[in-house]
Amino acid sequence: MGSSGSGVTGACVEALIARVEAEERGAAFGARVAENQRRVFQIAYGVLGNAADAEEVAQEAFLRAYQKFASLREAEKFRAWVNRIAFRLALNRQRGHRRRLARDTVWHVAGTSDAVDGARSAEERVLVQRLRSEIESLPEKFRRVLQLSIVEEMGAADVGAVLGIPAGTVRSRLHTARKLLLEAMK
C-alpha cells in the first residue's frame, strides 16, 4: 500500500515538474517574442510590403524559434537567429509571390495597392511605393543591406549577422545603396 502510494506521488511530482517546466518555457519564450516581435515584423514588412504577409512570416519565424528554443535561450542568440530566419522566410515568400504574379498579371495590379498599407497620407503612399519600387530595382547586394538597415534597432553588425558579411561591408554597401537610390529618386 505504501509503495503504491509513493508511486502515485512520484508520478504526480513528475507531472507537476513537467507542467512547471512547460510553463517556464512558455513564459521565457513569450518574453523573447515580446522583445523581438517588432523588429522581426519590420524585417518581413521591409521585404514584402504587406502587413498580413509580414505578420504570417513573423509568426512562422517565432514558431520555428520555439522548436529550437532549448538552444536559443540566450537573448542574443535568439535575436540573431530569429532575424535571420525571418529575413529568409520573407525572401522565400516574396519569390513565391513573384512566381504567382508572373502567372497572373491581374494579381500584380492588385498586389501593388497592398504594398503601401503602412504609409499614412496619399502622398506618402505614393512616395513609399516609389521608394519600394526603386529599392526593388537596386542590385541585390545593395538592396538586401538597405532593406535590413531601415529596420529599427538593426545596426550594421545585426545586418551583417543576417547576411553573413562584416559590418564594414554593410556600411559601405549601405552608402552605395543610398547613393543609387538618391540618384534614382529624381
Binding site: 512547460a22 512558455g26 519564450f29 513569450g30 517574442v33 515580446a34 516581435q37 517588432r38 515584423f41 519590420q42 524585417i43 514588412y45 521591409g46 510590403g49 502587413a51 509580414a54 505578420e55 513573423a58 509568426q59 517565432f62 514558431l63 520555439y66 503601401v116 498599407d117 503602412g118 504609409a119 506618402e124 512616395l127 513609399v128 521608394l131 519600394r132 529599392i135 538597405l146 532593406q147 531601415i150 529596420v151 529599427e152
Partner: peptide, 25 residues
C-alpha cells in the same frame, strides 16, 4: 524621412505575442 516607412509603415496587432505563444504550445 520616408525610408523607414518602407519597413516601419505597419504595426503588429496587440495580441500577436499571445497568439504566437499559444500556437507554439
Amino acid at each position: 524621412t520616408m525610408l523607414p516607412l518602407v519597413a516601419r509603415g505597419a504595426e503588429l496587432p496587440g495580441e500577436f505575442r499571445a497568439r504566437v505563444v499559444a500556437a507554439a504550445e
